[in-house]
Amino acid sequence: MSTSSTLTAPASPPAHRADVGRPRLTFGRILDAEWTKIRTVRSTVWTLTSLFVLSVGLTALICFAAAGELSQDAADEPIGAFATWGLMFGQIAALVLGILVASAEYSSGMIRTTLAAAPRRWSVLAAKATVLAGLLLVLGAITSTAAILAGNFFLDREGIGLSLSDPDVLRTMAGGGLYLAVLGLFGLGLGLLMRHTAGAVTVGIALIFVVGNLVGLIPGAAGEWLTKLMPGNAGTTMATVESFNPDLLGPWTGIGVFAGEAALLLLIAGWLFSKRDA
């Protein structure tokens, strides 16, 4: 690096200071800054690319592989469940992106820069949540629509394609975005609570993939209800045309429960965020 050791006027006389002006810190500005942050790191590009590629690719793959069989036996497999099958794996990327929005600031120490610039912590959290949810809502809907179209291409060839004007299909196209946005917010809560990327990813994946299935082993109504209510079970029906598990909560109830869980987690994380030292 060739740097001049001589100092070129490090700051300007008061006349210029007035020129810079003294705008106030506003929520809109924090929002703009958070948007700038999320779009200027590669991890965002990578997570969103894997979200799309995994979701669409795996859906296409399973539909290509299973369409023949599905068309033959008058199957007890719900065909609609295959149309967004890849999202089951793609969703990890949305969870990770949500976690990173908070945890990457702690691993780099940047959180101190953030809070020095915007000391209102609840506003910072709200801005992060808005940017993340907006991004996942849009890209999630695009992903889920693309997955349905790709999967349906193979289902159609075997004559078992879904009607794209079916209300449940249309609901799933948008619902994929909604589900992934809530999942991202859940990740944001985890990341802010744990302040550690690897730890939060482990806990998040365990909750959604392992614990969600294990609670089904609890006998009786308790097990049944826990299965319905676990994050990663509740809400998933919003992102599927039909669910493999008919016992899960319906799409709107499910997403409502999941959104409530994410909101509760964010409130706890936000409360600690405002109390703890940065």
């Binding site: 002006g21 705008p23 506003t26 924090i30 200027t40 610039a117």
Partner: peptide
């Protein structure tokens, strides 16, 4: 970009 997001918070 680091300086850019930082500037945006305070309308710089």
């Amino acid at each position: 970009n680091h300086l850019l997001w930082l500037a945006k918070t305070n309308g710089i």
